[in-house]
């Protein structure tokens, strides 16, 4: 009768193996290593600063990041004055004032990052009908997260001969369906890094992926360090509970 179970197990394994072919979920994204990988991993503040520079100078011309406020940027190690200056470059609508009029004022620390377009329709009309998605949660909202973002940035290739790319679209090996409206952005020396890091296209793609991961998971550093303390505490407590359990049950036998 034992053979009945092994037969079923073998059948189940066979079924799993047969079905292991990847479902139609877009191209496979290679796993990369990041500074925040693993139990002890934390963000690299210098990398986040570089990524923010890329976001500010390149991405934010089309993409919004509405969930992140300027005050949050202190987590990147930027001084409050520096962030105030960055914020003041943009204007936000405020009001109504005493006369009942809406007015524009420079953005403050408490404002969320000012989007490039006043609304989605304006964004579409400025981008050939395609809406550049908000980047606040991009690293959580795509399978592969930062790996995907990096692969997408570096995935612009000439299309294979049998593929016709639609008008206004670009061929990208990482994008599901391979045709993306966003034109390629990464190129060597697209930005100049203040910390002297060589701005190769791949470096820039890594940095922006890191920054977007921070934007999506700003709590990561705190989460991991609190997690470590919690785990140590729980292991100690559980070991004590186990010892006590052994002691209490000992007088039964």
């Amino acid at each position: 009768m034992r053979s009945l179970l092994s037969l079923a197990l073998a059948a189940a394994v066979g079924v799993f193996a047969a079905g292991a072919a990847p479902a139609s979920e877009g191209p496979a994204i290679p796993k990369r290593t990041w500074s925040w990988d693993g139990v002890f991993g934390q963000y690299d503040v210098k990398q986040l600063q570089r990524g923010f520079l890329v976001f500010k100078d390149v991405c934010s011309n089309c993409h919004a990041m509405k969930l992140v406020a300027y005050r949050n940027l202190t987590a990147l190690g930027l001084s409050e004055d520096a962030i105030k200056k960055i914020a003041a470059e943009k204007e936000v609508m405020d009001g109504p004032n005493d006369a009942g009029d809406m007015f524009k004022r420079p953005a403050r620390l408490s404002d969320r990052i000012v989007p490039p377009f006043p609304n989605d329709n304006a964004a579409r009309s400025a981008n050939n009908g395609a809406l550049p998605p908000d980047l606040s949660l991009m690293a959580k909202a795509r399978k592969g997260g930062p790996d995907y973002i990096h692969a997408l940035m570096m995935g612009y290739k000439d299309p294979p001969k049998d593929v016709t790319v639609a008008d206004g679209m670009n061929y990208n090996t990482a994008f599901p369906g391979n045709q993306i409206a966003m034109p390629p952005q990464m190129q060597d020396d697209l930005v100049t890094y203040a910390d002297g890091t060589k701005a190769t296209a791949d470096q820039i793609a890594q940095d922006i992926a890191a920054f977007l991961n921070w934007a999506a998971e700003p709590e990561l550093n705190e989460r991991k360090s609190l997690g470590l303390k919690t785990m140590i505490f729980l292991v100690v407590l559980t070991a004590m509970l186990y010892a006590l359990k052994r002691k209490i049950w000992a007088d039964l036998h």
Partner: peptide, 23 residues
């Protein structure tokens, strides 16, 4: 007997649970 056994179970379970919450 079972209060301590259940508490010990909670301890083991919390390690499993908190691993997902934090990592």
């Amino acid at each position: 007997y079972y209060t301590i056994k259940d508490f010990y179970g909670v301890g083991v379970f919390l390690i499993f649970y908190m691993f997902f919450v934090f990592y």
